[in-house]
Computed example of a mutant assay.
Amino acid sequence: MSDRAASDRAMSAMTRSGLREVYRVLRGHRRGICAAAALTLTGSALGLAQPLVVKNVIQAAGAGSAVAGTVALLVALFLAQALVQAVGRYVMVRTGEGWCWVCGSTSSTGCCGCRCAPSTGTAPVT
């Protein structure tokens, strides 16, 4: 067997074990992560629609027709995007708060009581 084939097989095994670790960490948080991702994508889509509405405002203003309805739509898109993205961030933060990065336990109150930092759960207390 060549060194290249052995190296490829070792990389494949490391990738599989890395993915298993990611799935283990995400277990129990799948619903929150999916909700946050869906809200973030929806907010991004609302943001992408805004330039199209601005184009319509400019064209309508150039043609001398009323633009109040289109401007109201633009404001509604902006507010909807801000709201959807804020809720998405909130869901993602709340999903991440229940995970202790030191011991790997999940707790709805934050830190599980191990020797990790009480406020963030990211670094051991010395």
Rank of each mutant, 00 (worst) to 15 (best):
M1I: 14
A6Y: 00
S7Y: 11
D8L: 15
R9D: 14
R9M: 09
A10E: 13
M11I: 12
M14E: 15
T15P: 01
R16T: 09
L19S: 09
R20L: 08
R20A: 14
E21R: 12
V22I: 14
V22L: 13
Y23H: 14
Y23G: 06
V25T: 12
L26Q: 09
G28K: 06
H29Q: 10
R30Q: 15
R30S: 13
R31G: 08
I33M: 09
I33W: 02
I33K: 05
C34A: 15
A35F: 05
A36I: 05
A37I: 11
A37P: 01
A38R: 03
A38P: 00
L39N: 03
T42R: 11
G43P: 02
A45T: 08
L46S: 01
L46A: 03
G47I: 01
G47L: 01
L48M: 12
L48Y: 11
L48K: 13
Q50F: 11
P51G: 01
L52S: 14
V53W: 03
V53K: 04
V54Q: 13
V54F: 10
K55C: 07
V57E: 12
I58L: 15
Q59D: 15
A60K: 09
A60L: 07
A60R: 06
A61W: 07
G62W: 08
A63S: 11
A63E: 11
A63V: 05
G64R: 04
S65H: 10
A66R: 13
A66M: 03
G69R: 01
V71K: 05
V71Q: 02
A72V: 00
A72W: 01
L73C: 10
V75M: 07
V75S: 04
V75K: 06
L77Q: 04
F78S: 07
A82L: 13
A82I: 05
L83V: 15
V84S: 00
V84T: 07
Q85M: 13
A86W: 07
R89L: 15
R89K: 11
V91F: 04
M92L: 15
M92W: 02
V93D: 06
T95G: 00
T95W: 03
E97F: 06
G98M: 02
W99T: 02
W99Q: 05
C100G: 01
W101G: 04
G104P: 02
S105D: 06
S107T: 03
S108F: 04
T109M: 10
G110W: 03
C111D: 01
C112V: 02
C112R: 06
C114G: 00
C114S: 03
R115N: 05
C116A: 15
P118M: 02
P118R: 13
P118L: 12
T120C: 02
G121N: 06
T122A: 12
T122R: 15
V125H: 08
T126V: 10
T126L: 11
